[in-house]
Amino acid sequence: MVFMAAVGPEDESSSTAAMGPDLGRLLTRSARGDEAAFAELYDATAARLHGLVVRVVRDRAQSEEVTQEAYLDIWRHCTRFDPSRGSPLAWMLTIAHRKAVDRVRSAEASKAREVTYESTTIEREHDTTLEKVETRLDQQRVRRALDSLTETQRGAVELAYLGGHTHTEVAALLGIPLGTAKTRIRDGLIRLRDTLEVTA
């Protein structure tokens, strides 16, 4: 029975350590059509997903649309969530990220966006956001992990993930060869993984 297979173990992902509710259980209940469970799931994750979407999309009105689309997708597909492919939160964030990236790329296809490396903007927004949110254990861990990256790795990873850029764009933005951008993104993520001790 597939539903049973989808019942994840307690979510042990480091990124959800401070998230409170058992997201795996909420997803499983949601998969059975339990709207109240989905509401709980939303409450537990909305700031995380929406923050990521806003970071990539920037435009608030569009971000809200993308966040809603992401939750609708999660609702439709939670019947197929497979815990062997990652934690519930990582799965949900992957969906939201993909939606956000799709949105900015389709918008950019219509009008080539002027691209500049906004490292100062990134840092400023980063700090403002942090002031607003309750400091959490996992955020501290993430910052420590980010500090373990070399500056060049961190720049490449942030442009790719938080900026929603392709590795080709990252190379152009940083003025580095294509292969180098690819390597930096991968090496940076590997170091993050190892520092966070993320287990899939």
Binding site: S13, S14, S15, A47, R48, L49, H50, G51, L52, V54, R55, G86, S87, L89, A90, L93, T94, H97, H126, T129, L130, K132, V133, R136, D138, Q139, R141, V142, R143, A145, L146, V157, E158, Y161, L162, R186, L189, I190, L192, R193, L196, V198, T199, A200
Partner: peptide, 15 residues
């Protein structure tokens, strides 16, 4: 694994 690692970055941009 790398997706899980990247997902952790979202903790820093909550909104």
């Amino acid at each position: 694994e790398l997706r899980a690692a990247a997902a952790a970055l979202a903790a820093d941009v909550e909104l």
